[in-house]
Computed example of a mutant assay.
Amino acid sequence: MLKKSNNIGLILKDKGDLAGALEYAKKALTIDEKSQDEVKMALRYNNIGYILQDMKKESEAQEYFKKASEIERYLNRYN
């Protein structure tokens, strides 16, 4: 399910359906949060940030980039 959600999101983004891409990216993030997969969570936060940037929602995008950065710093500190 996760891989399918992520792939559908990427396809929709490539086709210009940013709202659909955002929906699927958030579904993938929810699955990663439930499994506590921090590496994938950071990736999803970045993906959502890029989609939001494409939607011209800069401040919301920056929130997601910040979350990704915080996870990446945490992972680098303990790995």
Rank of each mutant, 00 (worst) to 15 (best):
K27F: 11
R44S: 13
K67I: 03
L29V: 03
A68G: 05
G9Q: 09
K4L: 14
N47D: 15
F65P: 02
R44M: 07
K67L: 04
K3N: 14
E70A: 03
E58F: 11
M55I: 11
G16M: 00
Q36I: 13
Q53M: 13
K34Q: 15
N79R: 12
G49K: 01
L2R: 05
G49A: 01
I31P: 01
N47K: 15
K27G: 05
K57H: 12
Y50E: 10
I51D: 08
G20I: 03
Q36K: 14
K15N: 02
R44C: 08
Q62W: 10
Q62T: 09
K40N: 04
D17H: 00
N46F: 09
Y78V: 14
S35H: 06
Q62R: 11
S59H: 06
I71N: 00
L12R: 04
K15L: 07
D37E: 04
G9M: 06
K15T: 01
G20Y: 04
D54E: 15
N76R: 14
Y50K: 09
L12D: 01
M1W: 01
L22I: 05
E58A: 09
I48F: 04
A25R: 08
N47W: 07
Y45H: 00
M55N: 14
V39T: 10
G16N: 02
G49R: 00
A42R: 08
N7Q: 13
E70V: 03
L22S: 08
R44I: 04
S59M: 10
K66T: 05
N79H: 07
E38A: 13
A42S: 15
K13F: 12
L2E: 02
R73V: 07
D32K: 13
K15D: 03
K40W: 02
